[in-house]
Design a protein around this nucleic acid. Structure first.
Lengths: 343, 343
DNA sequence: GGAACTGCCCAAAGCGCTTTGATGGCGCAA
DNA sequence: TTGCGCCATCAAAGCGCTTTGGGCAGTTCC
């Protein structure tokens, strides 16, 4: 059933039917009601292609996810982020177009996405410290929101980010207050902006605490369970092992915990662990009592807000780039305790 | 830059340019080369909407993910599945359109997706034992592939599935051979088809081993870490605790492991654990040595195959529904060992 | 009573592409 | 020279929708 057929059924012109369905004021209310009833009855849905062609609006948002060549993995927070964003899209009648790209052909894919004209805006995932994608998108004139920031670039674009620096600063500070002096950082890849900022926060707190950073206690890599396990195993085998760990993700923290267990150490008593917790649906940090002391920030909420920001910018092309900074909460769990007395 | 402008630049008609770019035989090779060069130079990309409208093909595949109301979570295997599927789409020039739906409005969303005509096919995620979606899609006449099966429905649709029954049968058999008699199952929600089949396999192996299934040792729920922890904690507190666990996912197994650790039990010695391992990028089951003994099947490979099947079916509408059954491998890790002597 | 609105509806022109059905030019055989 | 077939190209129709620019009543205003 298309518009023309529907119009014939109703004895109206396509014009009027179109206007009735799109809420234009120049149709009589009784006519509109008739049209809407018929549309429902015949299960009429406007053809997306024709509509896109006629209006120039795609009613669709592109999400471009980098997929790491190394582990051929997509960031596990992605599912939650998308879930949040999708709520906003559904409400606004938008579709979500997903593109996964390897690091190589990325700019080409952005260009194509823009030229094909089948997205109204883009969400950029996983920004690096300097990120050419931002310049490219600005040049293409396509509205976009970055999930995260690119610290080394002028900040005149739209972004939503968690205050990574502050979060890790506070977490480190807490460990110092508990008496820890040998604190290890198991971070994400530090060319990724979020990881770089976390490192900054970590180092800032150490410095305030009068503690020299020890490169041997700092590790960065893709945030897998294995990274946590290997990093912790290595560090614990050293002459002056750390008494506390700061981890960039729950799965990494679980790897650290496994390494502790393998050495017969008890988390929260022998060794303290703080992790960042993205509040993922399938990997809650405990139910009533948190397992890990953690800096927590819901990535799902971030997804929803990012989508809302983008939709607002699409709706009002003149508006300045929106920016949102979310603060993480520091929640106390069972994985931290006072530093053990040096033996 | 659109087709008409490009044609004017070249002093050709839009017809010829279109044919040249789409590989039709009736243009001279030298002309084709000229056209292609110009297209590249002016960065011409055909407008997706116009193309879709003219051809009736959407060049886009819909993925419809149910998002569980209970934990507002999307299945964590999703990211990997999509990564696999996306490889096939990129090669074939297809887009991926993602729709997340709550359990309520699902049929409406499928109808809309079909009527809007902006997908050529659909991948159905998370089928239940009986699943109305399959009837609906058949009725809509849209090609589709189900990731999983719906056991209680006629199997004349296209699907790709892992042999869940066999996998859990073998895993249970292994535990029995190791001397375990009190074996617990911590499963996914059993109205989901995969979980139901795993349960069947588990029960079949118990029966062959002459062991009565104990309802107190069977738990089903959303496959979170918390489920594993709670189920194992409860069961271990019972008068006759299990000596082995079978878990439906890695995160659940990690929850079980945490419960063991909390009671001072060592996995692989005091209590054995086997899990299913979807071979997720960020949650590898150990690097060289597997942490868990596991039934393993790559969900990423499944995603890729599902996409290829769907594309083939779209390319050849006459072809019968394709079906693929993948076998899981049973890999030995450190989490299993002989049943301890009863005290 | 005529002019100027207003309310409701319609015809037709696009949007950018594909595809059908010509068209003109050229070589070749009769 | 005429006639035929083939090659390379083109004009125009159409995909299903929105939107511009009327048009025709009926109403209001001076």
């Amino acid at each position: 059933m298309n518009l023309k057929e529907l119009a014939e059924h109703l004895g109206l012109s396509p014009t009027t039917v179109s206007r009735a369905l799109n809420g234009y004021p120049e149709v009589k209310e009784t006519t509109r009601a008739r049209v809407e009833a018929a549309a429902r009855r015949y299960n009429y849905t406007p053809n997306a292609w024709a509509k896109g062609l006629a209006t120039g609006r795609a009613m669709s948002i592109g999400h471009v996810m980098p997929v790491s060549k190394m582990h051929e993995m997509v960031n596990p927070v992605f599912g939650d982020f998308i879930t949040g964003a999708s709520e906003a899209y559904v409400e606004a009648g938008y579709d979500l177009k997903l593109t996964l790209v390897g690091d190589d052909d990325e700019t080409a894919r952005y260009r194509a996405l823009s030229a094909k004209g089948n997205v109204d805006g883009i969400i950029v995932h996983g920004p690096h410290l300097t990120d050419r994608r931002i310049d490219l998108l600005r040049e293409l004139g396509l509205p976009f929101v970055v999930h995260g920031r690119a610290s080394e670039m002028p900040a005149d674009y739209a972004w939503i980010d968690m205050n990574n620096r502050r979060a890790f600063d506070r977490a480190t500070e807490l460990l110092i207050e508990l008496g820890h002096r040998r604190i290890a950082l198991v971070n994400g890849l530090e060319h990724m902006d979020f990881a770089h900022r976390r490192r900054d926060g970590f180092l800032a707190a150490l410095e305030r605490g009068g503690i020299d950073a020890d490169p041997a206690l700092m590790r960065a890599g893709e945030m897998t369970e294995g990274l946590g396990f290997r990093a912790a195993s290595d560090m614990l085998a050293r002459p002056y092992p750390p008494t506390a760990f700061l981890a960039s993700s729950m799965v990494t923290a679980m790897g650290i915990w496994r390494a502790l267990a393998a050495r017969g150490l008890t988390m929260g008593r022998d060794v303290s662990v703080i992790t960042h917790d993205d509040d993922l649906g399938y990997l809650r940090n405990g139910e009533d009592v948190p397992i890990f002391t953690a800096t927590r920030s819901s990535v799902r909420a971030a997804g929803r807000t990012a989508a809302e920001m983008l939709l607002r910018m699409i709706g009002d092309p003149g508006c300045a780039p929106l920016q949102t900074l979310m603060e993480a909460e520091l929640i106390l769990g069972q994985s931290t305790g006072p530093a053990p007395r040096p033996r």
